[in-house]
Write a protein that binds this DNA or RNA. Structure first.
Lengths: 142, 142
DNA sequence: TTGAGTGCAAAACATTTGCACTGAT
DNA sequence: ATCAGTGCAAATGTTTTGCACTCAA
């Protein structure tokens, strides 16, 4: 656990959301001005393989990083890319059951699932982002 | 609907899985040798906004394209990136209910969800990919 | 004839990597 | 003194874009 890795972990944990590598870079840079983006990526990779954080990919082009490692769901704003933890408990029983069915039918070894809710965050709603979207468009966006 | 767009749509529909733009490019190229990758991307974008196909992003670095536009789930192999349709019906009632709860608590306007099962496909299992993975590692991978 | 759409090449962007150097042990 | 880890810069891989040209209506 080098000084850099420690600061990266701290800044991710206090970020409160699910930042990109670049957003973490900007925060860490304020404390370690000479750190490079390569070091950010290398340490995030390390932290992921140590199981201290998680890497997320979903309906957005960049990787996001998550300080929580317990199973939980996310909700993504399709307009601004904001990601928040979904404040609900995982739907364990019905979905684990589906995992078994899917594993059996596809011959995959299934060991998990990801559930992502999609919509528009309250700020984007205020800006009227969803106004012009028909139900079809909304479905498309998802 | 130009000739290029038509061929791209046809090749996606007969692909049988969830190809990347580049995989579609290779197929289309056999029929339209002078087509460019830019045209592939532009037409896939158009087809997505027309609601004729879907763009997927999940636990893999590249965009994937899906000829199906009805709501359904996917299962991804974390080793080789293969994506298949999950052969189960969407868990409508319990998850739509969760959408309402999440929307209420987060103030998001929620209009959909994505469920992705993760695991290893049968071919990767045969290769022994999962052998060395502890339950923790599997969880991490997810 | 004309402009929506194309082909091509360059740009943009996120992420990874090679390498010489540094600093904690 | 050593070498795991860093900083830097270049490379990589995917997706987007500017621009001149083409071809179907």
């Amino acid at each position: 656990m080098t000084k850099q890795r420690k600061v990266i972990l701290e800044e991710l944990r206090k970020h409160g959301s699910h930042p990109t590598a670049d957003q973490i870079f900007e925060k860490v840079r304020k404390r370690l001005p000479r750190i490079s983006l390569g070091t950010i990526y290398r340490n995030l990779d390390l932290l992921v393989s140590e199981g201290l954080i998680r890497r997320l990919r979903g309906d957005y082009p960049q990787m996001r990083f998550d300080p929580r490692t317990d199973e939980h769901y996310h909700i993504t704003c399709l307009n601004c890319g904001r990601i928040e933890d979904a404040p609900v408990e995982p739907l364990h029983d019905p979905i684990k059951n589906l995992e078994n069915v899917v594993g059996h039918l596809t011959k995959y070894g299934v060991f998990g699932h990801k559930l992502e809710f999609v919509g528009f965050c309250s700020e984007c709603l205020k800006k009227g982002v969803a106004k012009g979207l028909s139900p079809e468009a909304k479905e498309m966006a998802s």
